[in-house]
Computed example of a mutant assay.
Amino acid sequence: MRLFVGVTDDQWFHLLAERPSWAEVNFWRPSGLGFQALSEGELFLFKLHAPHHFIVGGGFFARALRLPLSLAWESFGEANGVRTLPEMRRRIAKYRRQPEEDLGNPDLTCLMLAEPFFLKREEWIHVPASFKPNVVVGKGYDTATEEGRWLFDAVAERLQAKPLQEVEERPATLAAVSTPRFGAPKIVRPRLGQGAFRALVTEAYERRCALTGEKTLPVLEAAHVQPYAEGGPHDVSNGLLLRSDLHRLYDQGYITVDPDDRRLLVSGRIREEFHNGRHYYALEGQALAEPHRGFMPVTRERLLYHAERVYRA
């Protein structure tokens, strides 16, 4: 397993640590550069700025995306480590050394971390000797090396001290604490939250409505195919990016997607109940777009669930 120790903004860390029950956090960078140091399920750890050379928490890496500021805020809100969008804009302007009025809607590197944890002061871990004071962004490790294994064991030991019920609800965390002292760490996909779901579905469909091709980002929403309240996961294979009006109709069962030919079906209930709907009936038979390469398409099983359990035929 690889680990990455990232240098964090102290304000970002302390704000999030005040409420340690986050399902996910966004470790964002003010640039739009990529990140390839980790794969899904590997550990991303937080190190405070000098003079505090300690690892103070972390999370399990989900994915790195380049997102506009507006989408990053809409998806994660305070899980961005700031209380308001204006505060986030001010911080980006500071890091970029750019006037705030010139920012526009800049792209950020968003490292989405699931199942985050924040260590108490007495649990902080001193960084390995190879992590030099002049490291600005971060440094990677591997459990195949002595330092990397020591670091993983130190993190696992602290996670083992957490309440069992809390750990059992977090699959990647459970895998880490269950790793034998000298055994190979098991990498498990972390449980994603609503924010990561929103961001991933938006990127999977290339910021276009999966049924109409609409590209106006503020009116696009991530819809669960099998409702989350009915066991549907926050996963791209259970999501569609839909125009906001279609999202509402989809959630309420007035439209669905045929699970076999993957085309739009529009219920006659719209006409019966609202004496209208011609714009929606004109979309009948519209083919569902496929997600961008690298993302899983919606499964037939999820589409079938919606067609049989939610759709008002």
Rank of each mutant, 00 (worst) to 15 (best):
E214V: 12
D107R: 09
R90A: 06
N238H: 07
V257W: 02
E18S: 07
F76V: 06
L192A: 09
H292P: 11
F27P: 05
R312I: 04
G195D: 03
R198E: 12
G193I: 04
L16Y: 01
E214I: 11
L283R: 00
A172M: 15
E168A: 10
E203Q: 14
F152W: 10
L65T: 00
V82Q: 00
G58R: 03
E203L: 14
A223K: 05
F197K: 11
F274C: 13
A144H: 15
R189D: 15
A161G: 13
V201I: 09
L264K: 00
L65R: 00
D153Y: 14
L200T: 05
A210R: 07
F131K: 07
A229K: 13
S75T: 00
E221W: 13
L265Q: 10
A175C: 13
D258V: 01
Q160T: 09
E115N: 07
T8H: 05
F61A: 00
E123Q: 13
F274S: 04
E214N: 14
D9M: 01
E100S: 06
P133N: 02
N105T: 03
P227G: 05
F274W: 06
A204H: 08
K120R: 14
R302V: 11
F27D: 04
P20C: 04
E166K: 10
P171S: 08
F295S: 08
Q286I: 03
L71T: 05
V177T: 11
E272L: 07
A223H: 06
F35N: 03
L249T: 02
A154R: 12
E18T: 09
E157L: 12
P20W: 00
A114D: 10
P291L: 02
L303Q: 01
E87A: 06
W124L: 08
G277L: 00
F54K: 13
A172G: 14
R158I: 05
L164M: 14
Q36K: 11
P180R: 04
I255D: 02
L119K: 05
L242S: 05
V167H: 06
G57V: 06
Q165I: 10
A64N: 11
P227I: 10
Y281V: 01
